[in-house]
């Protein structure tokens, strides 16, 4: 038990970092209504760019900005595949993801793993100081939520929401749905790259595989947040916060099951199955209610 409790701050810190990633996923999955698999690649792009920029002598702030921009470019590529090549969104994301695997290796000079020592560089956060890491994470969460809240309250932000909600309506009201999809993908992957940059600092290295399965963790965070908090969190800013809280809960649960003896290699399977079940719940609910209606109709007949 003591062992478990002492590992909590680490779970919370990691949960916050992945929660930031989940806010990026929220933009595509919930607002644009597409599942964007680019994030598996752009997470690592963010981390790789961060490490390379810092080891080249930049300060952490500049490096994070460049990491953000790199993520935006990844989203741009997916957006172009989707809107200009006419490739379905999911496949566009998979293509970019694969491209990013090579690009990320190039960024890291063909090394699969690059260290970023907290002793040598002035990092924003590190797992050596969990309290500090949590504080930095919370600040990033607050700033990103504030910026997203503002953006999605603007004319452009509204047109993005309309695009995700009803493309016919959007176009009939003069909204360029293609451009909006691209903007959404750019923004989403930029945020995911920030999360990757934070994760690289936190763990002290960037790895070409650090984003593998990221979409599943992001979806898990979004869905856990919604299932637990959608009844009380109606405001957009709170919905984003719910995704972050979902990320934290996800990491606490992961820590729990690992402490309980689950093989770490089975973790990805576990996460994917959890997400599959949660995605299935609305579908099953509908099936059950349809069956019930049919039964009632039959008994009334």
């Amino acid at each position: 038990m003591l062992n478990f409790l002492s590992s909590m701050p680490g779970a919370v810190a990691q949960g916050i970092i992945w929660g930031i990633m989940a806010m990026g996923v929220y933009i595509t999955f919930r607002i644009l209504d597409v599942a964007d698999l680019t994030v598996d690649g752009s997470m690592a792009t963010g981390g790789a760019t961060m490490v390379v920029c810092m080891t080249a002598g930049m300060n952490a702030g500049t490096a994070m900005l460049i990491a953000f921009a790199a993520g935006c470019l990844a989203g741009l590529l997916t957006g172009i595949f989707h809107t200009k090549f006419g490739i379905p969104a999911i496949l566009s994301g998979i293509l970019t993801q694969l491209i990013l695997y090579s690009v990320n290796l190039r960024i890291m000079s063909q090394k699969a793993n690059l260290p970023l020592s907290v002793e040598k560089y002035d990092l924003l956060l590190s797992l050596r100081d969990l309290r500090g890491a949590i504080i930095v994470g919370v600040i990033f969460v607050a700033v990103i939520i504030a910026v997203m809240y503002w953006f999605f309250g603007t004319e452009l932000g509204h047109s993005l929401r309309a695009t995700g909600c009803n493309q016919n309506m959007a176009r009939a009201n003069g909204i360029n749905t293609d451009t909006n999809k691209i903007i959404g993908l750019v923004l989403s992957n930029g945020i995911v790259a920030i999360s990757g940059a934070l994760l690289a600092q936190y763990q002290g290295f960037a790895d070409v595989n650090m984003g593998r399965g990221a979409i599943v963790i992001g979806l898990a965070a979004v869905i856990i947040g919604e299932v637990l908090l959608s009844r009380i969190f109606k405001n957009f800013a709170l919905k984003l916060l719910a995704a972050v809280i979902g990320g934290i809960i996800y990491y606490i649960v992961i820590t729990l099951v690992l402490k309980a003896g689950m093989n770490a290699n089975d973790l990805k399977m576990f996460s994917a199955l959890v997400v599959a079940v949660f995605l299935g719940i609305p579908f099953w609910k509908r099936k059950i209610s349809e069956k019930r209606t049919a039964k009632e109709a039959a008994s009334n007949a």
Binding site: F151, G153, T154, E155, L156, H158, S159
Partner: peptide, 11 residues
């Protein structure tokens, strides 16, 4: 805002 540019003004 149909037919007008959509920018970063409050919606």
């Amino acid at each position: 805002r149909r037919g007008k540019p959509r920018g970063l003004k409050w919606a």
